[in-house]
Every structure is written in C-alpha cells, then in structure tokens.
Simulated scan of single mutants.
Amino acid sequence: MRDKTDQIIRAAINVFVKKGFLQATTQEIAKEADVAEVTLYRKFSTKQNLFETVIKKVLENQFQTKIIKIAEENTDSFFLKILDDRLETLSKNHKMIKMLLAESLMGNLSNDLNFPVLIFNGLKKGIQLHFDCMNINANVELVAQQIGGILLSNVLFINGAPYFELTHEEKKVILNHHLQSLKANL
C-alpha cells in the first residue's frame, strides 16, 4: 500500500512542478504514477489534499527536521549547515520552489500551506532553539528574515551555475560571506 502512495506523491511532485497546481490534473498525475485515477482519489480524496500532502512531506523532510538536529552545534557551524543544506536543496529543486512561491503568491494555497511563511516559521523555530541552547540574546526574527532573503535570492536570481553544481571551494566562499553578514546581526 505504501508503495502506491509514494508512487503517487512522486508523480504529483513531477506534474505540479511542470504545470502548477491549477493546470495539473488528477488524470495526468495518475498516468504519471501508473495507477488508476480512482486509486489516487481513494488515497487522497481531492487534488488539493494531494497537493497539501506533497508540500507537507517536502517541507518536513527537507527543512524542519534538519534544523532541529543541528541546533546544539556552535553558531558558525549551525549557520553554515543551515545555509549549505538549504542552498543545496533549493538549487536542486528550484523549479518546484518557484512553483510553490508562485502558487503562494497567487493565493492557491491554504493559509496553513503558505510556503514562504512555513519556511520562515521553521527557520525562526530552529534559530530560537539554537539561541536558547547557546544562551544568545539576539533578534530571531531579524536573523530568520536575513536567512530567508539569502535563500530567496538564490532561488530567484541564479547567477551562473546553481549552488549544487559549485565546487567545494566555491561553496565555502559563498557560505563564509553569508556567515559574516549573519554574525553582524548578533
């Protein structure tokens, strides 16, 4: 049973990335997943429910759980790992991220699935946890906004090769540049 669900979710990601929420059809998703459309409806009931499941799965797997795991590391390591992980993930999935941003901006997502807000709130929660662990008294909101801006600019304004294609040294230069600007706000 789980395999069919995973097949449908993978197919839905592909179709939603190509077409966006409004233009994607359950028929296309079922075809891409190699399942009957009725199977898709049995598992998810509506296209909106499927879309929300896909978004939540991606956000939980790629963003929220990782930040909690590194909260107790020193501040430089914490910021570097957040930035590296997020830039890597966003650059590998830039089409899906752009689609999610577009869907959010067009109001096609429910309030509890507003992609930019979810990402920002996840960042704030992780940063607050880190600051609490390290006994740092700094403006969590400002730091989360700065990291959000760094991430957003790397999705919208790709200059040259995407982050995930850069060499280790090129990534290190970018990460250290961002780290210095983040530390200026502490």
Rank of each mutant, 00 (worst) to 15 (best):
D3A: 02
Q7T: 08
I9S: 07
N14D: 04
V15N: 05
V15A: 08
F16C: 04
V17E: 05
F21G: 02
L22R: 05
A24T: 08
T26S: 07
I29E: 00
I29W: 02
K31Y: 11
D34M: 10
V35R: 01
R42Y: 10
F44Q: 08
T46R: 00
K47G: 01
Q48M: 09
N49H: 03
L50K: 04
V54T: 03
K56P: 03
K56G: 06
V58L: 05
L59W: 04
F63Q: 03
K66V: 08
I67F: 01
I68K: 07
K69H: 06
N74S: 07
F79Q: 07
L80P: 14
K81L: 12
I82M: 11
D84P: 09
K92G: 06
K95G: 02
M96S: 00
M96Y: 01
I97C: 01
M106L: 09
N108Q: 11
N108K: 06
L109P: 02
S110E: 05
N111K: 13
L113N: 00
F115D: 01
L118R: 05
F120D: 03
G122L: 12
K125R: 14
G126R: 10
G126D: 01
I127Y: 08
F131N: 07
C133S: 04
C133G: 06
N135R: 15
I136P: 07
I136R: 15
N139M: 14
V140W: 07
Q145K: 15
G148Q: 14
G148N: 14
G148A: 14
G149M: 14
G149D: 05
I150P: 02
S153C: 11
L156R: 14
N159M: 12
P162K: 14
Y163S: 13
L166G: 12
K171D: 11
K172S: 15
V173H: 08
N176S: 15
S181V: 13
K183P: 13
A184D: 11
A184E: 14
